[in-house]
Amino acid sequence: KFGRVHERAEGPAKILAIGTATPFHWVDQSSYPDYYFRVTNSDHLVDLKEKFRRICNRTMISKRHMFLTEEILQKNPNLCSHNEPSFDVRQDILVSEIPKLGKEAVLMAIDEWAQPKSKITHLVFCTRSGVDMPGADYQLIKLLGLSPSVQRVMMYQQGCFAGGTMLRLAKDLAENNKGARVLVVCAESSAIGFRGPSEDHPDNLIAQALFGDGAAALIIGSDPKMGLERPIFEIVTTAQTFVPNGDCHLALHLREMGLTFHCTKDVPPTIAKNVESCLIKAFEPLGISDWNSIFWILHPGGNAIVDQVESTLGLEPNKLQATRNILREYGNLSSACVLFILDEIRKKSGREGLKTSGDGLDLGVLLSFGPGLTIETVVLR
């Protein structure tokens, strides 16, 4: 008597548009150690500064975009301390800036989509910054002038794996609601975790050397309108798992001094060791076991992770080039990073006149991972 209210779509979910945005301000990685130790009044920690310089040199990052300028840091000195309470200051900045950054990426996506924004039916927003109620999803709806009846899902504090999570959720929403057009937004800022150095917490140096700011937005829907919408990728399958006891290797915690970062040297080999089982589960039903026969979007948690995944799986050097390019130009953008790589690989395919948006290949994989050593596996066509 009370059956399904919403009719299912006929076809699989497809990515119809991609937009990205970054803050205008950026830092050069080669000179960042001098800048970082100067603005945090830590130049007296000579040995720690040299250690940080070595870490920065190993990241293979060229530059990173950041909202925090020297002027902002001078006005808010607690942000430059390692342990002073600064959460309220971070909140005041990020509750406002995260939706604005997301808006810039959304406008780029809508411009490519070339359809009225009134056709957006759902919003899925993800960030690890600016936790608030009502959330960044609500603020973004107002900034864009979208209908208050847009169906919203707000996900805070997920971390680097969440780019894949957003695709998984959007696929379910698009395929189970005929005519749905799902706006996916990942907006991230390193301002939540920026803090001064400490000899007692070397993990913090890794975070300060890796993370950048950026937002990515996608429009996802099934059954694209012929002649009006141009699909870029099809989302074939999605899956999530985590490595048992992985939280002892990688975890982040909200504290009075901001978001703290805990990471062990076992993260790269542990991820590399567990990736292939995810690939087998995803691609065995499709008859694929040659990992060089697919295109790759791999989250660059750090250069060591990229190198070890490449080595463990025997990947050809060009397979992870898009990942390395984004890491070099932006650093680790947390949940937004794989979506930047997705954009990079389709643009490169277009520039080179390849037959598909995925490096000329039919199928590919998007792998994202993060806290708890959670792994998201997304098969794309």
Rank of each mutant, 00 (worst) to 15 (best):
T121L: 05
I61R: 06
T40Y: 04
L367I: 01
L279I: 10
G358M: 08
P371Q: 14
W113G: 01
F87S: 12
V378G: 15
L367A: 15
P268Q: 05
L143S: 13
Q74G: 10
E112S: 03
I235V: 02
S86V: 11
L146T: 03
W113K: 03
L79Q: 06
K75A: 15
F52A: 11
Q308K: 04
F340M: 14
T59I: 03
P285H: 06
S81E: 09
L333D: 08
A114D: 11
D247R: 10
Q29M: 03
L252A: 15
L94A: 11
T356Y: 03
T238A: 14
K142S: 04
S277C: 09
L143M: 11
C126A: 07
K265Q: 10
P269F: 06
L252F: 10
A13R: 03
G3A: 07
H6N: 09
I93R: 12
E316S: 09
D137E: 10
F340K: 11
Q321C: 15
W291E: 03
S368E: 13
A13K: 00
K281L: 12
L373S: 15
N318A: 09
S335T: 12
D266W: 08
I72L: 09
A272I: 09
L143V: 11
D47I: 00
G360N: 14
G301K: 14
T22F: 10
R53L: 01
L279A: 02
N41M: 03
F369R: 15
V5T: 08
L354R: 02
T40N: 06
W113P: 06
K142A: 07
L373P: 15
L146I: 07
L73T: 10
R351V: 04
L327K: 03
Q74L: 11
R351M: 01
S277L: 05
G358D: 11
V378D: 15
E104A: 08
T323R: 01
H249G: 13
A114S: 14
G360V: 05
I18D: 00
D47E: 11
I93Y: 15
D247K: 15
S30M: 09
R58S: 13
L363T: 15
L286S: 02
T260I: 09
S335Y: 00
V131P: 14
L250M: 11
F242R: 10
L252G: 15
R64W: 01
T356I: 06
A336C: 14
S349W: 07
E7D: 08
S334T: 08
F340W: 12
V27T: 15
G364A: 02
D88W: 09
Q29G: 06
L250V: 11
T238M: 06
W291Q: 01
L123W: 07
G130R: 05
H299D: 11
L315D: 07
P12H: 07
S81R: 12
A109D: 05
I110S: 02
P12Y: 11
Q115R: 07
S368K: 05
N292T: 05
K142Y: 14
S357F: 10
D43T: 03
H82Q: 00
E352I: 02
E10F: 13
S349Y: 15
K265R: 11
F37H: 15
L101V: 04
Q321D: 15
S81A: 10
E344D: 07
K265C: 02
A304W: 03
C337H: 15
L123T: 07
H25S: 11
T323V: 07
K281H: 03
D34R: 01
K14H: 15
Q240E: 12
P85M: 04
L48W: 01
V124E: 02
L339N: 14
P371C: 07
R381I: 00
R324C: 04
H65I: 00
K63T: 02
A272W: 13
I341L: 07
I341K: 11
I93F: 08
Q308E: 14
E10Y: 08
I305F: 11
L228I: 14
P99V: 15
C80G: 10
Q29D: 07
T20Y: 12
V365E: 15
S293T: 08
I61A: 08
I280E: 06
E84R: 10
D92T: 07
Q321K: 13
E352C: 15
D247S: 10
K281N: 07
L339Q: 11
Q115A: 03
S311G: 09
N76I: 05
L320E: 03
A21D: 07
L333R: 06
L363K: 11
H122G: 03
E10N: 11
W296A: 07
E344M: 10
K14T: 11
I271D: 10
S30W: 14
P371G: 09
V267N: 14
I288P: 11
E276K: 11
V131I: 14
T260Y: 14
S311N: 09
K281C: 04
R53P: 01
N57D: 12
Y138K: 12
D359F: 00
S357W: 11
S349M: 11
E310W: 04
M108L: 07
S335V: 03
K273L: 03
W291S: 10
P85Q: 15
K273H: 00
E316A: 11
I93H: 10
H253Y: 09
P269G: 02
E256V: 05
P99E: 07
F37K: 08
T127A: 07
W26V: 08
L94D: 02
Y32E: 09
P99C: 15
H25E: 07
F37W: 10
E256Q: 10
K1H: 00
M257T: 07
P244I: 00
P244S: 10
D343P: 00
A21Y: 02
G314Q: 07
T237V: 04
Q308L: 09
G372T: 12
N303C: 14
M257V: 06
D47W: 06
E310F: 02
E352A: 07
E234P: 00
D266M: 10
H6W: 09
G370H: 14
M108E: 10
I297T: 05
F369H: 15
A239V: 05
N325D: 04
R351P: 00
R54D: 03
V365R: 15
M257E: 13
N57G: 10
W26C: 14
H65R: 07
W26I: 10
G287P: 01
T312H: 12
P317Y: 14
D247N: 08
G302P: 06
E71A: 08
A304M: 00
V131Q: 14
G246S: 14
G145C: 05
N245P: 14
V306W: 01
A114G: 15
E256Y: 06
R381G: 03
Y138H: 11
A282G: 02
F125R: 08
E70L: 00
K63M: 04
L327H: 07
D343Y: 02
I141T: 08
S357T: 12
I55N: 15
K273R: 09
V27R: 01
L252E: 15
H253K: 11
E10D: 09
T22I: 08
H262Q: 10
R8I: 03
L254P: 13
K103T: 05
Q321Y: 01
Y35F: 02
T356Q: 01
D111W: 05
V39L: 15
L259R: 15
I55C: 13
E276W: 04
S293K: 03
K100I: 02
E352Q: 00
Y138I: 06
Q91F: 01
N274K: 11
V106L: 10
W113E: 04
H6Y: 06
P116H: 06
I141L: 06
S277A: 12
I305A: 12
G11W: 05
G353A: 12
W296C: 11
N318W: 12
S289K: 12
V131A: 15
D307L: 00
Y138V: 15
Q240L: 09
M108I: 10
D307C: 09
H25V: 07
Q139V: 08
Y138G: 02
E284I: 04
C337L: 04
K103Q: 13
P12E: 07
R351F: 01
P231L: 02
A322D: 10
V5C: 09
L16E: 05
H122L: 02
G19V: 03
L361M: 13
E256C: 05
V275N: 03
E7G: 08
P269R: 12
L73F: 06
S357K: 06
I55A: 13
D34G: 09
E329M: 00
K142D: 04
K49N: 04
L286I: 00
D92R: 09
T237G: 08
Y35C: 11
H249R: 11
T323L: 01
Q91R: 14
G372L: 14
A13G: 02
K103C: 04
I61S: 03
F2W: 11
S368N: 12
A336Q: 04
